[in-house]
Nucleic acid binder design. Structure first.
Length: 427
RNA sequence: GGAGAGGUGGCCGAGAGGUCGAAGGCAGCCGCCUGCUAAGCGGUUGUGGGGCUAACACCCCACCCAGGGUUCGAAUCCCUGCCUCUCCGCCA
């Protein structure tokens, strides 16, 4: 959420930001009008409340002196009734203003390249050698089915489309990747491992920006009055760990890493990646989340991205890093790097991690603040997160990049202690 | 699922319809005193919003888990929800 004061006082900046994102800046008009009304009404209500307070105090004093306050009572009653009335309309204005401001996207950082869609994204670096094959490389779903480690058909029977049943070395590989990534991040990189709830309430979803705008992407538990949602990413529960809290300056930065399953409706992506592990309703992910001081957030974004890249480096998977342009930037993000891994069967890079700095956009929504030593008041922390990495996509990329002509798949060195084997073979 | 207890400032803890943003203690900050460590003494220290400012100061409003209600007036009374604790039952 943007600061209403900024929208009010630095409207031009917000208009520019919306334009850069390709959004219609005229949506601000209604908000500004509402906000003006809201403040006027607030002044009215506060003025009345003051009058009431003065009268009430007077009444109290008279009572104490044993005199009758009946003359004042009538007036006080009248003012009280009026307050109730005006408060009603103030509440309505507040609700409307909040609704409008919650759907405004974040302001892109000045370093974000201009562009209107993903064609405007800028490649920042490229690492690893693309594999060369003396045969026609297969798609990961064919490799997985031939090795009998991925069973999409039976998953379809159990749950439906966009689910997968992992078996034998496939299931073990999934687990190995989770453990490898968590071990890596909790090592030198210094992240603390957390394992959060994967069902969360509405406030949490609003805190990180999934609600109110993107409800159709979420699975909702409908037969329970708590109205919980399945998380689409660990970002939600982990960022909300500190919702409504004030941290001490010395506690920052906080680095968390979490493995969780993730659940997405994938509404509106019919026909996209219908085969394979790329787009599933349920998938595993190891997430990186940081809470930092504002002045550090952009160096923290660089290091967080490097932490995610390290996984691919150690696995030996070729990848590139892309800076998303203003038109492709996510709703809550001020700046995002996508990490994309090479898929030989598709002869292209596909997103495997998205590392973002949200600045104070999420922390303002979620009310996560910190206090500087010796300074008055509080400030919002900056939050960041990135996948480190999406497990299913990593597994898919490994199958494709490390496939052999005989249909087997070589396990990279770093995973062998987890897999207890060097190779996945048929049978 | 059943029966109780409770949620107050950074922490502990009073309060019980009026002058309570909230006693007291601890912690923190400022100063004094003391030639050791320590102790002692005085003062001070919440958050958000609005107004006015170049800014500070200042003024006002709100906040004692959350949301409603009663009342001229609620931390205090009533209702609902959430959370925590104890006991019983059930359960991976």
């Amino acid at each position: 959420m943007l600061d209403i004061k900024i929208v009010r006082e630095k409207t031009q900046i917000v208009i520019e930001a919306l334009k850069k994102r390709g959004s219609d800046a005229s949506i601000l008009d209604g908000l500004l009008r509402l906000e003006a009304k809201r403040r006027a009404q607030l002044a009215v209500v506060e003025e009345l409340r003051q009058q009431r307070n003065v009268l009430s105090e007077e009444i109290g004093k008279l009572r104490k002196q044993g005199e009758s306050p009946s003359a004042l009572l009538e007036n006080a009653k009248k003012i009280s009734d009026e307050i109730a009335l005006k408060e009603q309309s103030l509440r309505e204005l507040e609700t409307q203003t909040l609704q409008e401001i919650l759907v405004l996207p974040n302001i892109p950082h000045e370093s974000v390249p201009l562009g209107k869609d993903d064609t405007g994204n800028v490649e920042v670096r490229k690492r690893g050698r693309l594999p060369e094959f003396s045969f026609q490389p297969k798609a990961h779903w064919d490799i997985g089915e031939d090795l009998k480690i991925l069973d999409f058909e039976r998953a379809g029977k159990i749950a439906g489309a966009r689910f997968c049943l992992y078996k034998g070395p496939g299931a073990r590989l999934e687990r190995s990747l989770i453990n490898f990534m968590l071990d890596l991040h909790t090592g030198e990189a210094g992240y603390t491992e957390v394992f959060p709830p994967v069902l969360v309430n509405k406030d949490s979803m609003t805190g990180t920006g999934q609600l109110p705008k993107f409800e159709e992407d979420l699975f909702k538990i409908g037969n329970d009055e708590r109205n919980l949602f399945l998380i689409p990413t660990a970002e939600v529960p982990v960022t909300n760990i500190f919702r409504g809290e004030i941290l001490n300056e010395e506690e920052l930065p906080v680095y968390y890493t979490a493995y969780t399953p993730c659940f997405r409706r994938e509404a509106g992506s019919y026909g996209k990646d219908t085969k394979g592990l790329i787009r599933q309703h349920q998938f595993n992910k190891v997430e990186l989340v940081k809470f930092v001081k504002p002045e550090d957030s952009y160096t923290e974004l660089e290091s967080l991205t490097l932490n995610a890249e390290e996984v691919l480096k150690r696995l030996g998977l070729p990848y590139r890093v892309v800076a998303l342009c203003t038109g492709d930037l996510g709703f809550s993000s001020a700046k995002t790097y996508d990490i994309e891994v090479w898929f030989p069967s598709q002869e292209r890079y596909r997103e495997i991690s998205s590392c973002s700095n949200f600045e104070d956009f999420q922390s303002r929504r979620a009310d996560i603040r910190f206090k500087r030593k010796g300074k008055k008041g509080t400030e919002f922390v900056h939050t960041l997160n990135g996948s480190g990495l999406a497990i299913g996509r990593t597994l898919a990329a490994m199958l494709e990049n490390f496939q052999q002509e005989d249909g087997s798949v070589i396990i990279p060195e770093v995973l062998r202690p987890y897999m207890k084997s060097e190779k996945i073979v048929k049978g």
